[in-house]
Design a binder for these strands. Sequence first.
DNA 1: ATGGCCCGTAGAACGGGA
Length: 259
Amino acid sequence: MKIATWNVNSLKVRLPQVLDWLERTQADALCLQETKLTDERFPVEPLAQAGYQAAFAGQPTYNGVAILTRSASVGAPADVQVGNPLYPDEQKRLISATVAGVRLVCAYVPNGQSVDSDKYRYKLDWIDALLRWLEPQTTDGSIPLALLGDFNIAPEDRDVHDPKSWEGQVLFSEPERERFRALQRLGLVDAFRLFEQSEKSYTWWDYRQMAFRRNMGLRIDHILVTPSLRDRVTACTIDREMRKREQPSDHAPVVVEIS
DNA sequence: ATGGCCCGTAGAACGGGA
C-alpha cells in the first residue's frame, strides 16, 4: 500500500498535476494540504473519473485539507473526522479517516509567520492540542496510525540547507523542534529516517532565488507512524519530480510504502 | 540592507505562505 502527503498550494491550480501524479503512482491514499477551496468547489467529479474518492474540509482562500483514496484498492475514507475536538478552530487544518485499517491523520500545521507573532503562539498551542488528542490514539491496542502532512517544522540541522542562518527562525526554532520531539515521545516514528537517505533531502523550496535549482530547501513535510505500523514500512521517499514541472507547488510529495 | 515568487481575492495592491 502506498500512502502520500502533498501540500499542493491551491488544488484548483494543481489539479492537473495531482491527477497526473495519481495516474503515475497509483497511490492508495493521498493527503492534501492547502487546497484553498470551499467544499462546494472541491473537484469530486474529476477525481472520481480518475478512480479516487475524497474526504475534505475547506474554507475560502486559506488552508483546506483532504484525504483521497483509490476506490479500486481501498474504497472510500471511513470514520471521517474534521478538526481536533480538544481545540475548536475555524481554520481547516486537520482531517482524519480510516483507510485499509490504518488511521490517517492529515495535518496542515500553522506556519507561525515569525517567532514574535501571534500566529507563532497559535502554532504552538495548535500542536500542543494535537499532542493531547493523539496521545490516547498512539497507545498499545490502538489501530495503526500515521500522522501525515505539512508540519512546518524542520526537526534537525540536516533538514535545513543552512542551519546557521535558520537558527531561531520560525520553522526551525527550539520550541517548534521540541514539539516535534514530543510527537516522537508518543511513539511516533519519522518514516523518512527509517531508511538511508541522500544528504540535503528537502520537501520545500522557496519560489524565489531559484531555490529549487540550488537545493536551498527545508524538510518540513513528514510522515510519522506508530510502532505497529513502523514494522510494515518498507520505503519512504520524497518525490522531487513534481517540483521540476511548470507552475509547481513549492512542496514535494512524500510517499510511504506499507506492506 | 532589502527583497526577490506564487496564490486568492480582488478588480489594485495586499495578506499569507515558509
